[in-house]
């Protein structure tokens, strides 16, 4: 089985992965797939996703081969599908990140080994959404009825595209807070409303009142032609201590990281900050995902 888009997964499948992640966290270090070899094909930079996948792979006892796009035959003009076919001949699992949207789906089409999407352009980042769900489950014990505010560049952040879908699937109340022009894709909002019957509120003002989860993401400066405009928006949308007045005591602030000024450093030292714990949850969740693709 491949994990390409969060939309390919049913609620029961996600629940099974979350339960398995809990077990993986308790038995961390179990070498349950020690005869296998995986490939981590990261065609674009990554820190947390790549390292947590490599840690998850290692903890499962799987050996892995690594890949660096700039040192590969891609430089000689080899096509993407040929590269995937070659790697597929060596390994039992392919984990891929690529800047082009749909690349993981194309890799899954040509590979016989299971393919896990580690992020494809601005499209999907399903394993991030699963680790976000796992974090929320650990923190709050439920999803239904939780008030979740997604803040930032909702147009370009692939994390948010996947997250709004799964949160809707599990019945959370969602508020989308974004600067003008960086709103979430209307087709996606329409799709989740129709599929899951949820109400989604859209605003451009940060409001934490009554929120259980505040999920921030960075403003993607590289998408702006004017760096000054990007900087101004980032400043305006940074979460500061003063924004947290009136917040619930158990408010949890999450972020896929890296954070580059969207959250005041002061907040790191408050009980609201859960993003480093969230990042740590990437390992058991990805262990559960890898184990799941091998078993299905």
């Amino acid at each position: 089985m491949d994990i390409i888009s969060i939309k390919d997964l049913k609620k029961e499948q996600i629940e099974e992965i979350l339960i398995s992640a809990e077990k993986m966290e308790k038995n961390i270090g179990c070498e349950m797939h020690s005869a296998k070899v995986g490939a981590t094909l990261f065609f674009e930079p990554s820190t947390r996703t790549k390292l947590s996948f490599q840690t998850a792979i290692s903890r499962l006892g799987i050996k892995y081969i690594d890949f660096f796009g700039e040192w590969s035959s891609l430089k000689k003009g080899e096509s993407f599908t040929d590269t995937i076919k070659n790697v597929d001949g060596y390994v039992d699992l392919i984990i891929i990140r690529h800047s082009k949207e749909g690349s993981a789906r194309l890799a899954a089409e040509v590979a016989e080994a299971p393919v896990i999407n580690g992020g494809d352009g601005g499209n999907q980042h399903p394993t991030q959404s699963l680790l976000d769900l796992y974090t929320i489950k650990k923190l709050k014990g439920k999803f239904k009825g939780l008030n979740v505010n997604l803040i930032g560049d909702l147009k370009h952040a692939r994390t948010m595209q996947s997250l709004v879908y799964v949160l809707s699937m599990f019945g959370a109340n969602i508020t989308l807070t974004s600067p003008h022009g960086l709103e979430m894709n209307k087709d996606l909002i329409g799709e989740v409303k129709q599929k899951f019957g949820v109400k989604i509120e859209e605003t451009s003002q940060i409001d934490v009142e009554g929120m259980d989860i505040l999920y921030a993401c960075r403003i993607q400066k590289e998408r702006f032609s004017d760096p000054y405009e990007a900087m101004s928006i980032q400043k305006k949308f940074a979460i500061k201590m003063e924004n947290l007045k009136g917040a619930k005591d158990d408010l949890a602030i999450l972020h896929p990281l890296p954070k580059v000024g969207e959250i005041d450093l002061e907040i790191d030292h408050t009980p609201y900050a859960k993003y480093f714990e969230q990042s740590k949850n990437g390992v058991p969740t990805r262990m559960a995902i890898i184990d799941y693709v091998f078993r299905h």
């Binding site: 599908t81 749909g102 040509v110 352009g121």
Partner: peptide, 26 residues
Amino acid sequence: DLNAGDFKTIFNSGGNGRYKCSFCER
């Protein structure tokens, strides 16, 4: 992507005159 290689484009419609690319999901 000129260097993508071998594939066939596939689009699916929900019957509303709009089509979803099976690769990029747009």
